[in-house]
Amino acid sequence: MSGIALSRLAQERKAWRKDHPFGFVAVPTKNPDGTMNLMNWECAIPGKKGTPWEGGLFKLRMLFKDDYPSSPPKCKFEPPLFHPNVYPSGTVCLSILEEDKDWRPAITIKQILLGIQELLNEPNIQDPAQAEAYTIYCQNRVEYEKRVRAQAKKFAPS
């Protein structure tokens, strides 16, 4: 494992614990031996107030490669969400998460999670990743928002 990646992720964890947006979660997972795995984080993004996503808490896994922060983490909703920019596998399609697009090593975990929260309610229809959600979003916004509200209710924190 890269010392650069681990040191950056340790800084990220410290900064997150000191200050993070209300309702968001970002925690490194534990290895079988109980030690912390900084390369694999369990996160959760709350649906934004005043949107059909409100009330939901959407679980996301963030996986970092050894060359982080040169390369972005892979962000994957578990379980996958109904959304035009979420692949059926759950992987998020967002330009700041793509090395050859808008990724920059200075982007923080907090910025990534806030960017994904923004994307939930403002899909990028130029870059669809899920045919069904994309089609319904474009053709029947009322039905799309109904499905999103049902999903938010399903993923409401207990």
Rank of each mutant, 00 (worst) to 15 (best):
S2V: 15
K76G: 13
F24G: 07
E143M: 12
R8K: 00
L63T: 08
T135Q: 12
C93S: 00
V142S: 14
K154T: 11
G23W: 07
R8T: 08
G56N: 02
P46A: 09
P79Q: 13
V148G: 02
P123H: 01
E118N: 12
R141N: 13
R149L: 09
W16V: 02
C75L: 15
G47D: 06
I125L: 10
R147G: 04
L94R: 00
P52V: 08
A131V: 13
Q11N: 09
A150G: 12
F82N: 01
Y134Q: 05
N40S: 14
G90E: 00
P72C: 11
G34S: 06
R149C: 05
L63K: 13
I96N: 02
D102P: 02
V92E: 00
P21I: 01
Q126F: 09
F82K: 01
I116N: 00
Y137S: 03
K76I: 14
I96Q: 06
T91N: 11
S2N: 08
E143W: 08
Q139I: 08
A156G: 08
Y87H: 05
C43I: 02
Q111D: 12
V142L: 12
E78Q: 11
G55V: 07
T35I: 02
R149Q: 13
K65L: 14
E122W: 08
R104M: 03
L9A: 07
Q117G: 12
E99T: 05
L97H: 11
P69G: 02
L38N: 01
P72W: 03
R17N: 02
K30M: 09
E118L: 11
E145P: 05
R141W: 07
V27W: 06
K14R: 15
R61T: 13
P52K: 11
L9Q: 03
R13T: 01
W41M: 07
V86G: 01
V25W: 07
F24T: 05
E118P: 05
Q126Y: 10
C43T: 15
D67S: 13
K110S: 07
S7K: 07
L119F: 15
I45M: 13
Q117F: 12
S70V: 09
M62S: 04
L9C: 09
G23E: 09
A156Y: 08
D67H: 15
I4D: 15
N37L: 09
L81D: 02
Q130R: 10
L119D: 04
K49T: 08
A44V: 08
G23N: 11
N121M: 12
N124Q: 00
P52H: 14
P105W: 03
I112V: 13
S70Q: 07
A129D: 05
F24R: 02
R17E: 03
K76C: 11
H83F: 06
K49Q: 10
D102N: 08
K14L: 09
A133Y: 06
G50F: 11
Q130C: 08
S7I: 07
L60K: 05
A150F: 10
E98C: 06
Q126L: 11
L97E: 05
Y68P: 03
V27A: 06
F77M: 05
P157K: 15
G115Y: 06
D102Y: 09
F58I: 05
S89P: 10
V25S: 08
S2W: 02
G115A: 06
L9D: 15
Q130L: 12
N140Y: 08
L94F: 10
A5Q: 13
K153M: 13
I116E: 05
F58N: 01
A156E: 13
L119M: 10
K48Q: 09
I116K: 00
C93F: 00
L114D: 09
I4M: 13
P79C: 13
V86F: 13
T51E: 02
A129V: 00
D33Q: 03
I112Q: 13
R61S: 12
Y87R: 01
K101P: 08
S2I: 08
D67C: 12
I107M: 12
K59Q: 11
D66W: 07
L63E: 15
R61A: 10
L60R: 05
E54C: 03
D100L: 12
K48E: 08
E99S: 11
I112R: 07
K18E: 05
R141I: 11
E132K: 07
E122A: 12
S71A: 15
P28Y: 00
V92Q: 01
P28R: 08
L120R: 03
D33N: 07
E98H: 15
N140M: 05
P123T: 00
V86N: 00
R149K: 12
E122G: 08
D67W: 06
A10Y: 00
I96D: 11
H20R: 08
E122R: 11
A150M: 09
Q151S: 03
K74C: 15
E132V: 08
Q111H: 14
D33H: 00
L97W: 10
P157W: 13
R13H: 05
G115C: 06
W41P: 03
R141F: 12
I107C: 15
V142F: 12
I109L: 11
I136W: 13
F58H: 02
E78T: 10
S158C: 08
A156D: 15
